[in-house]
């Protein structure tokens, strides 16, 4: 008889969805990117839309997402993923399109594309992986780095007066009429992963409605860039990231009218 070593309730993903290529992730031990890839691809499998999905991953640690996500994908220049995704969706409206972008990509160099994509209400899913750092280039300050955070380019800690405050771009985007569904999730606990799974499902389902952009921020970690062990980094998310970037829905469709409305207390 098969014995579960893990409490089945804590299983947040299974081993080999067909939507993953099976190639081992190159991410550092404990990095959130791998979990987010898996959750996203499980949802694609569960919805049975593998053949219709087209993904866009720009440069960042996840630039090789196409090695792992077994769907058609395009690589994009730094910051331009949402422009690329816009065009794919416009010429292939019958397909599901998503972008998968880091904080440097989406909220620094790509800010213009990000805002205008959402402002046009492009019918795509934008996945925004916020690890508060530039992982790929070796741990430089990101637009979402926290005040006081030490990075390779803020060696004395981020100082608001000269480097600005961590940008809450998700809240900013929710203000735009083009935004249909906006939420912030995380992957640091099994419970958080379950909620993210649900959010990705919602987002793909809403994409069928042609009502506007679905934008999901995922608060993640970067043990290497943060110079922490994976366990310490999870703790750091709880203690430092979440107070600045609280989890939950920010803008959701009204169940009666289907029109997007801002969630109170957010």
């Amino acid at each position: 008889m098969e014995q579960f070593l893990i409490n089945p309730d804590c299983m947040v993903y299974d081993n080999h969805p067909v939507t993953l290529t099976g190639e081992p992730f190159h991410y550092c031990p404990g990095c959130g990117h791998g979990v987010i890839h898996k959750v996203l691809m499980e949802v694609v499998r569960d919805l049975g839309i593998q053949e219709e999905v087209i993904g866009v991953a720009p440069v960042g640690c996840s630039v090789f997402a196409y090695h792992y996500m077994n769907v058609d994908m395009q690589e994009a220049a730094h910051g331009r993923a949402s422009a690329v995704a816009t065009a794919i969706k416009r010429v292939r409206p019958q397909n599901y399109v998503f972008s998968y972008q880091g904080d440097g990509d989406l909220a620094a160099i790509g800010t213009a594309e990000t805002i205008h994509t959402v402002n046009r209400g492009e019918n795509i899913l934008m996945v925004f992986v916020n690890n508060a750092i530039y992982g790929m280039t070796g741990g430089q300050m990101a637009p979402t780095s926290l005040i006081g955070m030490k990075t390779a380019t803020s060696p004395y800690g981020r100082d608001a007066a000269s480097m600005g405050n961590p940008i809450k771009i998700t809240e900013l985007l929710a203000q735009l009429p083009g935004a249909y569904y906006v939420a912030r999730h995380a992957v640091h606990t099994p419970n958080a992963v379950r909620k993210l799974t649900k959010a990705f499902k919602n987002a793909f389902e809403y994409q069928k409605l042609n009502r506007g952009t679905c934008f999901i921020e995922v608060v993640s970690n970067c043990p290497s860039g943060w110079k922490m062990s994976p366990v310490q980094s999870i703790d750091w998310i709880e203690k430092n990231m979440l107070p600045m970037f609280p989890l939950g829905d920010i803008k959701v469709p009204d169940p009666k009218t289907g029109d997007p409305v801002m969630v109170k207390n957010n």
Partner: peptide, 13 residues
């Protein structure tokens, strides 16, 4: 930042 010259700004900061 961009590899392989990120050390320039890192050194300056």
């Amino acid at each position: 930042p961009i590899t392989p010259q990120s050390e320039v700004m890192e050194y300056l900061t």
